[in-house]
């Protein structure tokens, strides 16, 4: 009896799910058919708007179709820059759909809100600032970051006043932050970056130093290199070593080449290849026997990059190498240099 009852219940549930499956499929097919012609029209109109500032505005979609339209325009906006992007944004603003987009951000589900938030950024809608600023502090990492990115597109200098908060939000990945800062450009990123780096104990220093690459290198390098001598945190030293570009930092770099953390030694070996002279040879040759493969590899690369070290000299170092490890690494690097 129990088996029969459970079987009947399971079968009945299966039938209900099957009906749902068929209904969903039919509804989707009908929707796709209905939208196909409109999407083609929107696409064509968006392309026309992109090419001409005086072109006709695209047809206004019905409210229920607005997210589909915005998703289409978002894709297009992500692949264009400059005048084409300006033209497209102007044409879309002229459609009078901003209030409808605001309404989506305020009310609908996550999918449509993300579409609308991204669109507001592309449209550089300054009237959405308050709405987006509030959302950028939301606990949801995807929603908040999409809002922050839209703010950056609307007014990058104003948005970057909150760079410190952005750096502190560890649920915003460096890759996402980096993409946004890269798009904003070094002219805009550099002033707030300089201010934060000048702080004697900034929060999220390791993340900040990694993001410093999106500022003008020459303007942040000096302050970043300052951390080389003042910090004991391996990841901070590591990031600072990547900014070393002249012999003024040689003493610190030499010290870093003896650091307990192999990542720091590796970065120091690389830095020596950039700024060192043949006076660093002894240190680099010593690193060829390091326990870490990567330290040995970059030491060998740097030896080859030192001014005045010819392929013949590299071969001589290999022949005189004190260990098989060192000789093997020099042989590999020589082969790589010959191939390059």
């Amino acid at each position: 009896m129990v088996a029969a009852a459970v079987a009947a219940a399971a079968f009945a549930s299966s039938v209900i799910l099957l009906v749902a499956l068929v209904v969903l499929r039919v509804a989707r097919d009908m929707r796709d058919r209905r939208l196909a012609a409109r999407v083609a029209r929107w696409r064509s109109a968006l392309h026309a708007a992109m090419e001409s500032p005086t072109g006709s505005t695209p047809p206004v979609p019905a409210p229920r179709d607005l997210p589909v339209f915005l998703r289409l325009s978002n894709h297009l906006q992500e692949t264009i820059r400059g005048e084409a992007s300006e033209n497209l944004s102007a044409a879309m603003r002229a459609m009078g759909i901003l209030p409808a987009i605001h309404a989506i951000v305020a009310r609908r589900g996550l999918h449509d809100r993300l579409v609308a938030i991204t669109a507001l950024g592309h449209l550089r809608d300054a009237t959405a600032w308050g709405l987006l600023a509030a959302l950028s502090r939301d606990a949801d990492a995807v929603l908040s970051f999409a809002s922050a990115r839209a703010l950056l597109r609307i007014d990058a200098p104003r948005a970057l006043e909150f760079l410190a908060e952005a750096v502190r939000r560890e649920d915003w990945s460096l890759a996402r932050l980096g993409t946004a800062l890269q798009e904003a450009g070094p002219d805009v990123v550099t002033p707030p970056m300089e201010r934060l780096l000048a702080d004697p104990a900034p929060e999220g220093l390791e993340r900040l130093l990694k993001l410093a690459r999106f500022a003008h290198r020459e303007r942040v390098a000096k302050v970043v290199r300052g951390w080389l001598g003042s910090s004991r945190r391996p990841l901070v030293i590591l990031a600072a070593l990547n900014f070393v570009e002249d012999a003024a930092d040689l003493a610190s770099v030499r010290g870093a080449a003896r650091h307990a953390d192999w990542r720091v030694r590796m970065a120091a070996a690389r830095a020596l290849g950039r700024i060192g002279t043949q006076r660093e040879l002894a240190l680099l040759l010593g690193l060829l026997d390091d326990a870490s493969w990567w330290v040995r590899y970059h030491a060998a690369q740097s030896i080859g990059a030192l001014p005045g070290v010819s392929p013949r000299e590299l071969e001589a170092f290999r022949a005189r190498a004190p260990s098989a490890l060192a000789a093997g690494m020099l042989e590999q690097v020589m082969a790589e240099r010959a191939r390059a």
Binding site: V6, A7, A10, F11, S14
Partner: peptide
Amino acid sequence: ALAFSMGFL
């Protein structure tokens, strides 16, 4: 039937 219907579900 139980084995069938649960698997089908």
